[in-house]
Design a protein around this nucleic acid. Structure first.
Lengths: 340, 340
DNA sequence: GAAAAACTGAGGTACGTACCTCAAAATTTC
DNA sequence: GAAATTTTGAGGTACGTACCTCAGTTTTTC
């Protein structure tokens, strides 16, 4: 039988109350006693029974997701996965409220984060642009004892903040390699589109993309990133211009998270037929485009995995456990029509 | 607050004991009463608290994995993931014993399955070749009330047996499309290797592979599947022969689960340089080969997902819950050097 | 070495369900 | 309608931990 807290108390030569104090990090225990208990834990191989612990807590875990209010189809997918988990999570005593942030207003984000209290949140997964205000606000959330992770969009590394999402440099490199391999011996110019080049993810993807093309494919030239700012008209104009200016465009890389707009424009541009098109994130738009052969590949991160991984990590933090790293790395997936 | 069994008893106008009988499917309750309780469940939205239920069960779930005794690197990966889960699963009160089967001995498999008892196993994930003996043995396991799923290798569909694994036809099609896209305008012959063409997975992959090539790439011709039977010498001979017989071999498709042998042979065959090589399943061998550029792509299914999905499904069956389909579909992943 | 402070122990209740027993009630059988 | 059978109710214990209180003990402080 697995050792229980009772066995642990006996092994450590202390009472159940003290074991409880140590296990749950309560104050008022001498370091010497803490050490004794921890040694006993090692010795008898005690592992807290999470099932019983969860039941005894008398309340569900509350792991918030702080997400931009609006952000295209991929964000909608993530939201859907969170809600899906919410249903299943009730039986596991985990709640996952969503907190909407205004992407363009760092002060507003900071204020929203400031309102988080340990009373209402055990942990929070934050998807927000990296600005000084946001960074500071996250720091204060953590100081209040709320477990915090960066979600999908990374925050500056120095913070020691855990991050759930893909390595965007690798994702860009993946897109670059696929682009080059699909182009084969073709030579020419590749246009790169993004909603904005401000976002860290765009920067990193671009770095990875260029690294591959520059290193191995001298016959391919990449143009500076063109910004759509999520505007259809603007995107269209940009595409026209770039095709007019460069007669040898052989490939297009849609780097942003919402590829719907460029895909729709590309569909109507007969000039693009035969070019290699690569986009990011599986959404209704990219999925249909893949099926119809309008784009060639999608580089993707699974929203369901993102959500569940964030929850598992936050929970592990609450229970000061370590997580299985192998389980938590979010994969950079390659999608083509055949493996949708 | 979420309704409890007590609330449910009140709502249904029965006692706690009867609620318990209905919830856990015990005998000795009139249909009328069962219906009344079920209606009350709907009415008040009762959901069993799995945390409390697990605790009260006083014993861990035991989900066995019946796997071939030996089966190459991919099987080792799966085994490693099961053991990894075992550690983490203890705190969740789930045990995952591994049962070794002799792949080549259907009667032995049947005997091993016959020894499974509901006393020792709540569910079992079975990876075994589809033979009549195995099929019947699985049927008897199910009759004894042990929840059962087919794992990685599919069993005949008619059985109504749940399957955890990828769609191998789609996987073959994915390999076919990548092969053709990577070859670009090149024309020639493609050789296909497998350990055996008996296995259903090989058949299905081959179907998918051919479907894509025949439909869209008239310039590419595929040869009949060559069987290595897991033998290095034989594999080498086969490869020599095929290269000698066909001067225009432009691509190789390693269809089996253990690509190590063909990869090692291909490495030493300078005649293969410049050809497109595609293999299945991420293992140490395929991973290194991808990094070194010795092969071009790997079509993969994540062993960790396979294991966890099997466990989730078995658990859901035990608790007669439904599972989140979106979470349980195993993806056919494409790996290249950049997204390892 | 006395007072204050810090620490520890003993005991309790609670969580929501599983599983058990036994008696009472309802229903069926003859 | 009496006997046999089936169904139901009432009550209990158990799981392993969290969290609470309060008295008692040890250690620190001056």
């Amino acid at each position: 039988m697995r050792p229980t807290t009772k066995d642990l108390a006996k092994a450590a030569g202390v009472s159940l109350a003290t074991v409880d104090r140590v296990l749950n990090g309560r104050a008022g225990v001498r370091q010497k006693t803490v050490d004794a208990v921890n040694e006993a834990i090692e010795e008898i191989g005690f592992e807290r029974n999470q099932v019983a612990a969860t039941l005894a807590r008398q309340r569900a875990y509350r792991f918030g997701f702080a997400l931009p209010r609006a952000g295209g189809d991929f964000l909608d997918e993530i939201t859907a996965r969170i809600r899906e988990f919410e249903r299943a999570g009730r039986a596991e005593m985990i709640e996952t409220p969503i907190l909407h942030l205004d992407d363009k207003d760092p002060h507003g984000i900071a204020r929203a984060l400031a309102r988080l209290s340990p009373e209402t949140h055990d942990g929070i997964a934050i998807m927000a642009p990296e600005t000084p205000q946001v960074r500071d606000a996250i720091g204060r959330v953590r100081e209040r004892g709320i477990h915090t992770i960066a979600f999908v969009s990374n925050q500056p590394e120095e913070e020691g903040l855990d991050f759930v999402g893909i390595d965007n440099r690798a994702a860009g490199a993946t897109a670059g390699r696929l682009m080059a391999r699909f182009l084969g011996p073709a030579r020419g110019t590749i246009a790169v589109l993004a909603e904005t080049i401000q976002a860290r993810s765009s920067l990193e993807r671009r770095l990875g993309f260029d690294a591959v093309l520059n290193a191995d494919y001298p016959g391919l030239r990449t143009l500076p990133t063109l910004e759509t700012h999520g505007d259809a008209g603007r995107a269209q104009q940009i595409l026209y211009n770039v095709l007019a200016a460069h007669g040898d465009v052989v490939g297009l890389y849609f780097m942003g998270a919402d590829a719907r707009i460029p895909i729709e424009i590309a569909r109507d541009l007969s000039a693009l037929a035969g070019r290699v098109l690569i986009a990011h994130e599986r959404t209704t738009a990219t999925e249909h485009a893949l099926r119809r052969g309008e784009i060639d590949a999608v580089v993707h991160q699974d929203p369901g995995h993102l959500v569940r991984s964030a929850i598992r990590i936050l929970r592990a933090k609450c229970e000061n456990r370590s997580t299985l790293a192998s389980q938590e790395r979010i994969r950079t997936e390659i999608l083509i029509a055949e493996n949708l």
